[in-house]
């Protein structure tokens, strides 16, 4: 009976250690090595940091800057700016915008920079935030720009 108890205790230690090690190691590897490559999109301030080149295909995400949206004279092309509150990137897109596309809301676009530094998007997806509310009300954080990686910079952001 004593032998059985010891074996059970041994199994408990071995299985617990194996699971903890495996989970811990996998998460560390993911966070240490995978962080960038597992992200879906770059933000406007990443473009300069990463030295993204003209013609290089990538995804750009951020908030559609309030007051930046306009339609070009051809009537088909939309122009707006995507901001992460640290930097702002002008974008042009020809096509159908999703229902949720709006100024001040999130967006994920796919395309490349042209020679004049405008991001020519081939796809525009709307990214909604975590707020759910009845119509006619506003979430607490509305109107404040917030950068996910830099709260201090976000606090000093004044727009434009």
């Amino acid at each position: 009976m004593a032998g059985l108890q010891t074996r059970k205790k041994q199994r408990l230690v071995v299985v617990s250690l194996a699971v903890t090690t495996l989970v811990g190691a996998s998460l560390l590897v993911l966070l240490a090595l995978g962080g960038d490559s597992l992200s879906l999109f770059l933000q406007p301030s990443d473009i300069k940091d990463r030295q993204v080149e003209t013609g290089q295909h990538f995804r750009l995400g951020g908030l559609v800057e309030t007051g930046s949206f306009s339609r070009l004279d051809d009537g088909l092309t939309y122009r707006f700016a995507v901001t992460d509150c640290l930097a702002t990137q002008p974008v042009e897109f020809t096509g159908l915008l999703p229902d949720l596309f709006r100024e001040g809301q999130g967006v994920v676009t796919e395309g490349e920079l042209n020679s004049s530094g405008v991001f020519i998007a081939s796809t525009v997806l709307a990214k909604h935030d975590e707020n759910y509310r009845p119509p006619g009300t506003m979430p607490k954080a509305e109107g404040q720009c917030s950068h996910p990686n830099d709260q201090a910079a976000a606090a000093s952001y004044t727009g434009g």
């Binding site: 966070l31 879906l40 995400g61 999130g106 994920v108 990214k127 909604h128 975590e130 707020n131 996910p148």
Partner: peptide, 14 residues
């Protein structure tokens, strides 16, 4: 929270 995603962050358990 760890990576940029199209899916929005948590709304309830935060």
């Amino acid at each position: 929270d760890w990576w940029s995603t199209l899916h929005q962050p948590a709304s309830v358990i935060r």
